[in-house]
Simulated assay, not measured.
Amino acid sequence: MSASASAPGKMMLSGEYAVLEGAPALVAAVQARATATIGPAPADDPHVARDLDHAEPRYPEAARTRRLAEKELGEQAGALRIDVEALRKAGRKLGLGSSAAAAAAAAGAVFVGVGRDPQDAVSRARILSLALEGHRAVSPNGSGADVAAAVLGGVVRFRLDPATREADARDGSWPEGLVARVAWTGQAASTRELIGRVHALRDRDAAAYQAAMQRLHDESAHFAAAFQESPAAIVEAAARYHEAMDALGRAADAPIVEGRLRKVAELAAAAGGRAKPSGAGGGDVAIAFFTSDEAAADFEARCAAAEYDVLALELGGPGVKMSSAR
């Protein structure tokens, strides 16, 4: 007998870097889903999760979250098997938050195993708390916005208290008339390396760091306000956030807005929209915003001509939920 749950990936809409300093962030679920299954599995199965105390850890965020959930609900027999292939392209990560989705799915599988619906409001709140704790135990530098999107789904308004590390995650909604497309740069980025360079800036030049972060904080607040105003305001806010991320990268000598992301932004602007990195930058994916389907189609054509992939991703949709065991 197996218990299985799935959880979506994430797309950062705004708040990159600044969310760690307390700025508001917006993050959307992406219906490319990770699946976690607790049940029988071969000993040599490469998809079985292992915590950091194992000689060869795999999906440690998921393994740790399972431990925490079982401490609360009781141990379950079987291995934890993780499938994140939907969050990859040709075996390469896309920057869609696969580790957060795996952690959320792992907690969901434990809840399914004891007969609780992960989508129930009470269960969902507990899964969020457990997945945040499990993910942070392995990756302490993240904000948790990706975990919130994986658990809650839809659009999430997220804020982190930098002093207490308490997360405030609330359901939001997608603005009527706003059209978005996700473009893959073809280059996987190292979030850890980029954050390391930003932290190095903080250590060597506190004033430059504060100036860059204040600008991002202000643009995060501007984007959050625009998200409640109009699609045109969001398009303009995306351009401003892109520029603020680029300024942070230049100050930190970090390729946050590298050549591919810069090109995607140019293609979006030529089509009448605006684009920005989604996540830490350095490659991975960009999100482009438009006020019409026609402009988005123009962007897709321009990306195809420039040999950039526009990913067929549904933004929003359900968070963690029970899945058919496989």
Rank of each mutant, 00 (worst) to 15 (best):
A280F: 07
S278H: 04
L20I: 11
S323T: 12
A226E: 10
G153E: 01
P318C: 08
T35Q: 09
S139M: 14
D246C: 07
A325W: 07
L20W: 03
I82F: 06
P140C: 06
E219K: 08
R88T: 04
L13F: 08
Q31I: 05
L216F: 07
A239D: 11
G144L: 03
D284F: 01
R50G: 07
A280K: 03
S292Y: 02
S190A: 14
R204D: 11
V147E: 07
G113W: 00
R66W: 06
A252C: 06
L267Q: 04
A23D: 04
E70W: 09
A188S: 14
D168H: 08
I195N: 06
V155M: 09
A125H: 07
A62D: 08
P140F: 06
A304Y: 08
K321G: 12
A268T: 06
K321R: 15
G279T: 01
A90F: 03
P24G: 04
E243V: 04
D284I: 05
V19P: 05
H54R: 14
E21I: 07
P277N: 09
G196C: 14
S98H: 02
A286N: 06
T191A: 12
S323N: 11
I127F: 05
A304W: 11
V122E: 15
S323Q: 12
V285H: 00
G281W: 01
G273F: 04
P318Y: 02
R250T: 11
L313V: 13
A23F: 05
S230C: 13
I195F: 13
A109V: 02
A280P: 06
A211K: 10
V122G: 12
V147A: 10
